[in-house]
């Protein structure tokens, strides 16, 4: 009998009991209303302002999972030994890791889904207030696509959190490492651009260049998952790019989870 799905469900259920989730909903409603109102201050790009803010709330709300829930549900599991409850059943450690990852993914999908609905509601509300011609560029499919890819980014980050929680013994350290991964993941592409460009007066040692290039391949390239601006401007998101990013996300997650499982299998859980 497969134990992955029960573990995912119990993780999801446990995550749902965190009140911070309801805080996110309140925060999102507040922010979306704010977005609709503030966009009126601008001359032309009303739709863009609304979507900028709302889609950022989608991403930020989703980030709650890796930064808060994942660390609590994984490191906390090991620290407080609730993991015994799960491993006392015939669940292998690999199943534990994958089940936890899927459970966290379900939580992220729920948050992103709800916040995307809020975004669409905010846009609809905006069309009721402001003249029609500001919304000629509105593309619901781009909004949905952007949210889907934002979810992929969160899943990718989640996989690294799973790894950090497996290799560290404290949730504080896991949070710090997650934060570092996120920041590096968001900026590494820009850094590579920077060191690759032959800027006059900037001399970068070959070692540094190499290190940064390697970083690009090791850390998740989270910036690649950011389609908020395209969606905000109503540009079509190319199918090729989306599929490439999706395949990248899945491959990366699988690789990281394999490392996590290998390490976790060796680890004592005293």
């Amino acid at each position: 009998m497969n134990t992955i799905w029960p573990i995912a469900l119990i993780t999801f259920k446990e995550g749902l009991r965190y009140r911070v989730l309801y805080g996110v909903v309140v925060f999102a409603v507040f922010f979306n209303v704010f977005a609709v109102l503030i966009s009126g201050f601008f001359m032309r790009d009303i739709l863009k302002i609304t979507l900028d803010l709302c889609l950022s709330v989608v991403s930020a709300g989703g980030l709650l999972v890796p930064f808060f829930l994942a660390v609590n549900l994984l490191s906390g599991d090991i620290e407080q030994r609730t993991i015994y409850t799960i491993l006392a059943r015939p669940a292998s450690r690999a199943n534990y890791i994958i089940g936890k990852f899927i459970g966290l993914g379900l939580l992220a999908a729920m948050i992103v889904g709800v916040l995307t609905c809020f975004t669409l509601l905010a846009v609809w509300g905006s069309t009721q207030i402001y003249p029609e011609h500001f919304f000629t560029r509105l593309s619901v499919s781009s909004i949905l696509m952007s949210s889907f890819i934002a979810l992929l980014a969160i899943l990718t980050l989640n996989s690294t959190v799973v790894l950090w929680c497996c290799v560290t013994t404290s949730s504080f350290l896991a949070t710090l490492l997650t934060l570092a991964t996120y920041v590096v993941g968001q900026t590494v592409e820009d850094l590579v651009h920077f060191v690759s460009a032959q800027l006059p007066g900037v001399d970068i040692s070959p070692t540094v260049k190499k290190v940064i290039h390697v970083t690009l391949y090791i850390f998740p390239n989270l910036a690649a998952f950011d389609f908020k601006q395209q969606a905000a401007h109503g540009l079509a998101i190319s199918f090729q790019e989306v599929s490439l990013v999706t395949v990248y996300g899945f491959a990366y997650v699988t690789a990281i989870l394999i490392i996590a499982v290998l390490y976790f299998n060796k680890r004592d859980l005293p």
Binding site: F41, F42, L53, S56, Q186, D190, F194, A223, Q229
Partner: peptide
């Protein structure tokens, strides 16, 4: 600008909106 772009992570749109409002 490249530094600011890196600092705002995945939220350059919101930062641009904020700065625009501020400048306006």
């Amino acid at each position: 600008p490249s530094l600011v772009k890196a600092l705002v992570l995945e939220f350059p749109g919101v930062m641009a909106d904020y700065l625009m409002l501020n400048t306006m």
